[in-house]
Design a protein around this nucleic acid. Structure first.
Lengths: 343, 343
DNA sequence: TTGTAGGCGTTATCAT
DNA sequence: ATGATAACGCCTACAA
């Protein structure tokens, strides 16, 4: 059995005073005499008294905990987001509880309930790729829990959102390839049920149109899973087919690496034979050989922005102020990377 | 103000029964009539009643939360550990609260206190590189909180530990280089205050001795920070000096990449001119060009093992059984990676 | 300046 | 089969 905890009552007993006096002394209430405060603080330090947040949370109906649910954690983007969230949370005296849905809807539902049961003061979530039914989140909102969606969002829910400018980023990527002289640009596209996949595809098309290049649907290859195996396989098939192309715009980091692998295995050179640009927040882009030019989404910035929005809402509602959900867009940037052969 | 939560009392009122009956009905207590149970469950579902874990935790002095403190999260190794911990925790009905110390001792101390305040049922920790004073952890242990240290551990504390077999791994790495024909192997070594740094260095020395190669202290270069900048700089200086060497055994992933960068910048080929082997759990090792042979530490396995040990202790102590702390060693493995030039 | 009492949501004990 | 009550640790209006 866990050792007994040392409580205010214990301090009170030892000092022959009441626990309310102890409570007030510890929070430096002006009514309490300096003598009492000294005695209480001394004993508290001596016995290494640590308040019980559970009791506090129950009392105040406020836990000072932010929840965050991500589909995976072994992924630079989400790890960066969490890191950004933590930074903001710490500064405001909040802790962070993390759940990993592992791209499983069932897990996501369970996690959401667990978060509410723990009475988190607010929740940040990036849904599963497969999530379409949002009733678990709706239920949360109905219960009055501030919610912020990031990266993978849905417009069925009237909550704050933080997204990257996928359309713009994809446009930049495609434009970059066009300016390099590429004419036949393959797009390895993401799932069509996520805004992210659609927007990137549209940005790609828009750039082609602006530069008077016909959109060829044969060059748009679906990679709905977005994992390494799929991307490698798809690209291999592409290379083995009679379709000719001189560049690939991959809708995410893993897809880009898969494409890269197959291109290399085929004995082709990057970027001489085929240029590749990837989308995402990945340390890898600069470490690969050749390092890939990429469209950076700043996970940290998204985390910071999302947590800031969430806290804003939490605080507003605590003061009974109305809070209107907002959608913040984090601009993506094109980061050109030179191949080391050019150094 | 957060919307009122729907409680057992509310159910009781609506049904004109007492909250204790509701409590029993919800947990399917045999004493309660089926009629009552049905009514209660129906209403609970209708109103989407969700228990308040805070109240439960307070009542039972048990939170069903495991805490974990890691120095960083944007790092494959720690992300993998967390992932492993989550898996185990979920299966046992526990949630996970994560704190990131950011390699800051002050933050680590704050985090530890926060964890205790939240009354986590147990804590997993990998300390800061700089942590030498363990009083914050000792205090935790004194309070009866089960503690498991992993990866970066200290033998000043009599708690369970999960570590990798660093000595063995370093031996394997060095042996691999020797068998490739390397004679002058540089070791970029880690901090001397961490077991991890010492053991890897000793493993390196042991392999040299076993293969009758004299240990040359000039070839052991300290990289106490272990960051990219330091490693790159140190290797650059090494290459600019008149010291000759044909291989580098880097004590971690980042150090390996730093070394790689400088070697490439110097116009040298890997592994033809200089072989590099790195230590760690990193997706990068297989994606770099050339992919580096590496000593794999399985972060997931460490996470699983650590969480398992922690839960074992928690359960034992709940039954008032004594639990003797154990140290588990996760074997490191050498993963050979062929350069794509050999494909 | 300090103490008393009630309550946050839940469950266990002891009635009825 | 169900209810009343106390308790977990803390805070706060009210009383003294």
């Amino acid at each position: 059995m866990r050792k007994e905890q040392y409580t205010m009552q214990d301090i009170a007993n030892e000092l022959g005073i009441s626990k309310s006096t102890v409570s007030r002394a510890l929070k430096n209430h002006p009514d309490i005499s300096q003598d009492t405060k000294n005695a209480v603080n001394k004993l508290a330090k001596e016995k290494d008294y640590q308040p019980n947040s559970l009791a506090l949370s129950l009392r105040h109906n406020k836990s000072f905990v932010l929840g965050i649910i991500v589909p995976e954690i072994v992924h630079d983007f989400f790890a960066n987001v969490i890191s950004g969230v933590q930074t903001v949370a710490y500064n405001e005296g909040y802790n962070v509880m993390i759940c990993i849905s592992n791209e499983s809807i069932e897990q996501e539902v369970v996690d959401t309930k667990a978060m509410y049961s723990s009475r988190v003061d607010g929740l940040l979530i990036s849904t599963t790729k497969k999530t379409t039914d949002l009733s678990h989140l709706q239920s949360l909102v109905r219960k009055g829990v501030p919610l912020v969606m990031f990266d993978r969002v849905s417009d069925e829910l009237d909550v704050s959102k933080v997204i990257t400018d996928d359309h713009h980023g994809a446009y930049l990527a495609t434009e970059h390839l066009i300016k390099q002289g590429c004419k036949k640009i393959v797009h390895l596209s993401g799932p069509n049920n996520l805004a992210i996949g659609i927007n990137r595809k549209e940005g790609y098309k828009a750039a082609l149109r602006d530069y008077k290049i016909a959109v060829d649907d044969n060059l748009i290859i679906p990679c709905p899973l977005g994992d390494l195996k799929e991307a490698t396989e798809v690209t291999k098939q592409l290379l083995d087919s009679d379709l000719s192309f001189d560049a690939i715009f991959a809708n995410n980091d893993v897809t880009a690496i898969g494409a890269m692998t197959s291109v290399k295995n085929k004995g082709l050179k990057i970027p001489e034979d085929i240029s590749i640009v990837g989308f995402g927040d990945w340390r890898l882009s600069k470490l690969l050989e050749p390092p890939l030019t990429s469209i950076e989404q700043s996970g940290i910035d998204i985390g910071i922005q999302a947590a800031t929005l969430l806290l804003e809402q939490i605080k507003a509602e605590e003061k009974d102020k109305e809070f209107k959900p907002r959608t913040e867009i984090i601009k993506s940037k094109l980061i050109k990377r030179e191949s080391s052969t050019q150094r």
